[in-house]
Design a protein around this nucleic acid. Structure first.
Lengths: 306, 306
DNA sequence: GTAATAGTGTCTATCAGACAATATCTT
DNA sequence: AAGATATTGTCTGATAGACACTATTAC
């Protein structure tokens, strides 16, 4: 115990006595869910001739079999139990849905809008997980409880900036509003949302808000959680080796570059990319082959360093 | 409503009917607290002659008047109410403690260790706020409910790296353990903690854990929350204009540099710093004066851009 | 040979680190 | 003038963008 247990409070109770008589039933409490954005890289299977397969970013969704949002698609997740952390709950869900355990995962954000769940007061502690695309293919067809990989398309639709004239007493501010289209497709299923990102800049800082302005087929506020996860993923990929967690144990630098391009949504220059990637990977002695063009050296993650 | 309200579940209920009969009382629920790490820059008042005053990073703590941890010092915070978000709860607390409203704030992390509160199951959604040091001085002496600014000293004590030989069936890993000393002082009060940061790197990613190994005078797991906040602050200051939120409306570039140095814990080169800062600030026409040396131009935050 | 990808070389502009030189105020 | 800080200049090395060139395979 790192505190003094003999000290008395104003009622003359020691801490032990206080705790014994503590009644936790006074306040209303929220339920806490752990929801996961599980990303992977999907390969467009089809392709003629000898070109490399196109890649796309994918996310795992589950079709809800119960109310509310019955039939809608949702992030895998569940309620946190009293004997576990939110992270343990998230890993438990991950294990249940994918059979994978030791996987890259990070906490994203806790969403707590009181109305986000129509049943009752439910907060969501969201996590992002990145899964190696080779392990993924094993599970891709697994339709057991109606879990599916969706292809992600996420792009800016429009943007405009306002400089409202400050009326009396107000502080000046700038408002920038962006609309992002989020489209998730899997075979014939197509979910789509429009998310309004509004950034309000005042002298005291920038406040960013995400709001769902259109929603087709996604449960709860999960379109917003996915948007948040995508922005985190994009932001972090640029300055960290995050994307390596999406790679199989051995891969070519071109494959790695494709993953970066898919996440960032833009083309990268080969030479520059390979220079930067060099510090994150190490050579193997193997090469690809039988691909209709020059073989490519295989690399693996360099992982002994921090 | 963004969902189909006519669809029936396996019990033949519509969503409206389901919600009406929904009983939220089944599962155990956690309490949710919003705790805040409120940082500012404190000036060492004393100083001989005509030198610039030294600066230090400060954090606001409150002495607990009730069990548990009676007499210990804690981050300002409180329970989230059913009609507000965690962020609104945090702002409410901030307002109560400092009287400030429009202040830079960001969500940090949700701590959910089931044992973190001896009373009952309480999670903490933590926030970081940055407060302009000029507004601060007004409140610094405010001892009303025993709230005080503490000077922060936070440094690496030791570090060592292990390469455990993987035993049969285990995957290879590297473990790096660092011990950080956190010292918080205010007048004659001195709180101190040792936090063990253990980073375990396996092929599947790096997992970082913080554990409090020594704790004197800080309530709950707040030493860990503070450590987390300090690391976020340090990390983000390097690539964002975050530190500007700690500045008064007009300031010199040297003052800004001091703030960066205090947060990062290292000296910066003047020329390079001024080049980088140039994009974040804009000139005013004012200068400092009467300071025993050459006057310095005053700048303000450049805030119209995103 | 052709189509495709793999891999390297190099020029340039930009930027951060390092250090020096000069400017300007108060006492 | 002395003591302090303010401000600017410049050299250098590292790095990213841009582009071009060469290499190697399957068919």
């Amino acid at each position: 115990m790192d505190r003094d247990t003999r000290i008395l409070d104003r009622n003359g109770l020691t801490e032990a006595e206080y705790l014994q008589s503590y009644d936790p039933g006074h306040y209303e409490r929220p339920s806490m869910a752990a929801d996961m954005a599980i990303f992977t890289v999907l390969e467009e299977t089809e392709d003629n001739y000898r070109k490399l397969p196109e890649k796309e970013l994918g996310i795992l969704l589950i079709q809800r079999g119960v109310h509310p949002y019955l039939g809608s698609w949702a992030l895998p997740g569940g309620f946190v139990r009293p004997d576990e952390t939110t992270e343990q709950a998230a890993r438990r869900e991950l294990m249940e849905e994918t059979g994978l355990n030791h996987v890259y995962m990070e906490q994203l954000y806790t969403f707590s809008d009181p109305d986000r769940d129509p049943r009752t007061w439910v907060m969501s502690c969201s996590y992002m997980a990145l899964i190696d695309s080779s392990k993924v293919r094993i599970k891709a067809g697994d339709d057991a409880d109606n879990a599916r990989w969706f292809h992600i398309s996420f792009y800016l639709m429009d943007e405009h900036t306002d400089y409202p004239v400050p009326t009396d007493g107000e502080e000046p501010k700038v408002v920038r509003i962006q609309h992002y289209k989020l489209e998730l497709t899997s075979d014939n299923i197509c979910l789509s949302s429009v998310i309004e990102k509004s950034m309000t800049k005042t002298e005291n800082g920038t406040f960013t808000e995400y709001e769902i302005t259109e929603n087709n087929g996604l449960a709860f506020d999960h379109a917003r959680i996915i948007t948040y996860a995508l922005e985190r993923l994009r932001g972090k990929v640029e300055y960290s080796g995050l994307a390596l967690h999406l790679m199989p144990s051995e891969f070519t630098l071109t494959q790695l570059q494709q993953v970066y391009e898919v996440i960032l949504g833009k083309r990268l220059l080969k030479a520059a990319f390979r220079r930067k990637a060099a510090s994150l990977v190490e050579e193997t002695d193997s090469y690809t082959g039988n691909e209709g063009h020059r073989p490519s050296r295989l690399y693996r993650k360099k992982w002994k360093e921090f």
